[in-house]
Amino acid sequence: MKVKGNMAYKPQYGPGTSKVAENRRKQMNPNQKLKKMRDVTDEDVVLILGHRAPGAAYPTAHPPLAEQQEPDCPIRKIVTPTEGAKAGDRVRYIQFTDSMFFAPCHPYQRTYTECYRFRGIDPGTLSGRQIVECRERDLEKYSKELINTELLDPARTGIRGATVHGHSLRLAENGMMFDMLQRSVLGEDGVVRYIKNQIGEPLDRAVDIGKPMDEEWLKANTTIFHSLGDSAYRDDKEYIEYVQRIHTLRTKYGFLPKE
């Protein structure tokens, strides 16, 4: 999805002068191509998601749009359906947990990023996890992008459909985020492999998602403020000013001020 060239204003994506703010803007801006970090195949993505067997046909929720009568609706004429919607796919999900220890992305950031970059999605943002729902065919395409790019670190990001606990806990001795179900394992060779799908069912074969990034890269690319380890939120004056302005305006609006 591209931002239209003829827009009346240039989107700013977010305030802030810090490195963290810069990383946030970079991820949100759909004109900025996300750096490709690893090569997880389509089949691997299907295995991790666990919604259907690799190679199986997409189960459908309704007949393809071309085969059914569409009501006369002006909105349907404006909006082009996505591939998944066109085929009548089921709505399925992928859910991420991001460690507070400098994960490259975090729930709110993921939602903003996805809304700017993808179409036909329904993200759900929670403190420790972020879920995105969409048509299965689209989901696999988007998931592949979310996994293969700099939005994911094999050790500090977890693909977890259920039992997500771990984002605010200490890391394990080997640097992996705590996972009750141990879906991904750091091998002797330093490569992280998914041995269970996102809901914790064992996979027939391990899915290789590459080596964890080093601490230096994580700190340079994180979108999380962390006063103890890296850039502190309060050091970014512009960010604070912006958030305080919104907070003040919202509070005042609660009292319905008369201009």
């Binding site: 459909g161 259920a162 039992t163 009750m180 179900l181 141990q182 394992v185 809901i199 914790g200 069912e201 064992p202």
Partner: peptide, 16 residues
């Protein structure tokens, strides 16, 4: 065992 979610009740082999 997996405590909740769609895979609830399935064994949860954990190396630790």
């Amino acid at each position: 065992t997996v405590p909740y979610g769609p895979a609830r009740g399935q064994p949860n082999p954990h190396p630790d």
